[in-house]
Design a protein around this nucleic acid. Structure first.
Length: 294
DNA sequence: CAAGGCTCCTGATAGC
DNA sequence: TGCTATCAGGAGCCTT
């Protein structure tokens, strides 16, 4: 499940292998992969053709490649199983190949280094996709204007986040997953940060003190930076970097997926609870159920 | 308006 | 063995 660290690993790969290359041809093999491009697959294809890509940016789990001189960007979201792979032309098509982008490689040094490669969007579960959008004055695609800055963004406002939590009538894990409050956090890193903070997922956000919020944000940043340092979290081949390689952070997870295993802090058996059509993993001793569940 | 629930999708795996 | 049920879950959209 690609969250902020995994998406950032992909962004870095695109910066190295795809930035400054000119699109020659785009092939959409599954319409659902461009469903956010409302004008359709043909329009998507034609609008990309002939344009040079700039340096990719990221906010939370979204990343985008600016089309130079157009004021537009190709927006990408990996969903649950999306991959952006840089592959040699001759590599056989992946089973779930959805979009192929070929480049008009010239004699630039960047193109020479990239060799005869193309960009492929591969996505088994089809929750992800690519689309083209106008940029806002801030330089981000207009359709993600509602996405909050992420905790690794230098301009993320810790105090405003705390005040939002105090105002809301919701619980802490819901808030962590609310991309309009803080972006980039998904189910895995939410559980990890809550475990590190000794907070139960059903804790009401309005009860968090300023130091408690600061501690939580610190743990969110720590766990994301630690994952980034080892290439992200992979459980299987569904999440990989642009070269198809897995990250190693799954070996460092303290909460997610550890049902029935001893808590790494106190030894108590970790539990899993169904929660919002997914799962929450927690230590019943370190992360006590709050008295008043809102 | 805010909060919470539903839904899209495929494949691995468990259970009968 | 082969079928069905369950689970994985991001985020737009809908309902309350």
């Amino acid at each position: 499940m690609p969250e902020l660290p995994e998406v950032e690993v992909v962004r870095r790969g695109l910066e190295r292998w795809v930035a400054h290359r000119t699109v020659a041809e785009v092939e959409v093999l599954h319409p659902r992969a461009v469903r956010r491009h409302l004008a359709g697959a043909d329009d998507f294809t034609h609008r990309l053709k002939g344009h040079r890509l700039g340096v990719p940016s990221r906010r939370g789990k979204y990343l985008w490649l600016p089309l130079e001189d157009t004021g537009q960007s190709v927006l990408a979201h990996l969903g649950m199983s999306g991959q952006l792979l840089v592959q040699p032309h001759e590599a056989p098509s992946e089973k779930h190949l959805r979009i192929r982008v070929r480049f008009a490689d010239t004699l630039t040094s960047a193109a020479a280094e990239a060799g005869g490669t193309e960009l492929r969007f591969v996505d088994q579960r089809t929750f992800g996709g690519l689309s083209l959008h106008d940029n806002t004055p801030d330089g981000l695609p207009d359709v993600i204007a509602h996405i909050a800055r992420d905790p690794l963004d230098p301009l993320f406002d810790d105090e405003a986040f705390h005040q939002s939590l105090r105002r809301k009538r919701t619980t802490v894990k819901r808030a962590l997953l609310d991309q309009s409050l803080i972006s980039g956090v998904g189910n895995i890193y939410a559980d990890e940060a809550l475990w590190r903070s000794r907070l139960h997922y059903d804790r009401a956000t309005a009860t968090l003190t300023r130091p408690r919020t600061a501690e939580l944000l610190g743990h969110v940043r720590d766990v994301m930076n630690a994952a980034l340092a080892v290439g992200g979290t992979s459980f299987d081949s569904l999440y990989v970097n642009v070269n198809g390689e897995s990250g190693y952070f799954d070996r460092s997870l303290d909460a997610y997926g550890r049902e029935g295993l001893p808590c790494r802090r106190c030894g108590t058996t970790m539990r899993r609870r169904p929660w919002m059509n997914r799962s929450s993993y927690f230590c019943p001793k370190c992360q006590r159920v709050p008295r008043a569940v809102s």
